[in-house]
Simulated scan of single mutants.
Amino acid sequence: MKDLNFRHLYHFWMIAREGGLNRAAEQLDLTAQTLSGQLASLENQLGGALFHRRNRRLVLTDFGETIFRYADEMFTTAESLSELLQQPPEHRPLTLSAGLSASIHKLIGYHLLAPALGLSREVRLHCQTGDTDNLLDRLARKELDVVLTDRQPPSERAGAFQAHRLASSSISLFAEPALASELRDGFPGSLDGAPFLATSLDAPYFTELMNWFAGNRVRVRVTAQVDDSALIKVFGRQGVGYFAAPTAISSEVCRQYQVEAIASIEEVRDVLFAVTRAGQIHHPAVDAIIKPRGSIGQE
């Protein structure tokens, strides 16, 4: 690499892109003779002909096509970088790498990220889901800018992170219309022994919900354990059982999955946090996310 003449490679790329020496020379403000000499020098360095002449036109050889593909990727990227750097810093696109705990409902995840996407400045979002502990490890390694989760970092790691409480919501129970109508009658006793769709993820609100069931003497009959919040709703739509989701997204859940709400349980709360690194440098998109809001979906 240290021996490759990138200026000559760039001029070769221009010749191939413009379709000839004269047009490339005009673009580069050089003479065709100078470009011809540089091309010969590059071909000698690379050990093969890049063009052959056909009816007074330069046509890429097979070897030249290969070199051009690499050069095109390199210099197209370089031109994009140059255009970016010419913009005022406040107008350059922001890159936001966010981690979303798998135990957070996907609709909730969208609402939490929406303020960052609503900035006047362009934001290029990279969002990854996963286990909270793994996401926090990636945050510590500076691979992520923020982690959205339903729990605070463990106490032994509290000094490395800062947890910002975003919002909370009560939990509601949902089912397909016929089952929902049946379970609303005599609630909460009607839930005793009814088919229930449980999350297999370690979501804090789920533990609270199990305690609420026990306190109301509801025997929980789990018909399926699912580790995906969207898949649970699909099972619920098919009548396999009733399921829990945050009340804040009740209308969206009902509309998207053709289910109905059975009841809201105010004693059980889904609390959400944005976790950043301690002493993290100011990031406008992260600042928009951690802005306090009354409930999920409210700005």
Score class of each variant (00 low, 15 high):
residue 79 E to A: 14
residue 119 L to A: 08
residue 11 H to R: 15
residue 49 A to T: 14
residue 225 Q to A: 12
residue 147 V to L: 11
residue 258 Q to V: 10
residue 133 D to V: 12
residue 36 S to G: 14
residue 134 N to C: 04
residue 23 R to A: 13
residue 244 A to R: 05
residue 127 C to E: 06
residue 101 S to L: 03
residue 130 G to A: 08
residue 93 P to F: 02
residue 89 P to R: 09
residue 223 T to C: 06
residue 295 S to A: 13
residue 29 D to T: 13
residue 271 V to N: 03
residue 38 Q to P: 07
residue 14 M to N: 04
residue 270 D to R: 00
residue 160 A to M: 12
residue 211 N to L: 13
residue 195 P to T: 08
residue 271 V to I: 14
residue 54 R to H: 12
residue 20 G to I: 10
residue 245 A to M: 10
residue 243 F to D: 00
residue 239 G to K: 03
residue 79 E to G: 05
residue 89 P to S: 06
residue 46 L to T: 09
residue 178 A to R: 13
residue 26 E to S: 15
residue 77 T to G: 11
residue 140 A to T: 09
residue 44 N to C: 10
residue 136 L to S: 02
residue 118 G to V: 01
residue 259 V to F: 00
residue 78 A to G: 07
residue 60 L to I: 01
residue 103 S to N: 09
residue 263 A to Q: 15
residue 173 L to F: 05
residue 19 G to M: 11
residue 145 D to V: 06
residue 108 I to N: 00
residue 64 G to L: 06
residue 124 R to Y: 01
residue 48 G to R: 11
residue 266 E to L: 02
residue 235 F to Y: 14
residue 291 K to Q: 14
residue 262 I to Q: 05
residue 91 H to M: 08
residue 231 L to M: 15
residue 298 Q to L: 12
residue 202 D to C: 07
residue 278 A to L: 05
residue 245 A to P: 10
residue 171 I to R: 02
residue 199 T to S: 12
residue 44 N to A: 15
residue 10 Y to R: 13
residue 130 G to N: 10
residue 177 P to G: 02
residue 142 K to T: 15
residue 108 I to M: 08
residue 3 D to M: 08
residue 231 L to E: 15
residue 12 F to L: 06
residue 292 P to E: 03
residue 59 V to M: 14
residue 167 A to Y: 04
residue 5 N to H: 06
residue 277 R to P: 02
residue 88 P to C: 03
residue 256 Q to C: 04
residue 176 E to S: 10
residue 155 S to D: 13
residue 63 F to E: 10
residue 200 S to G: 15
residue 174 F to R: 06
residue 206 F to R: 10
residue 223 T to S: 09
residue 16 A to E: 03
residue 216 N to P: 11
residue 75 F to Q: 08
residue 15 I to F: 02
residue 73 E to T: 11
residue 251 S to T: 14
residue 16 A to Y: 01
residue 154 P to Y: 00
residue 297 G to R: 00
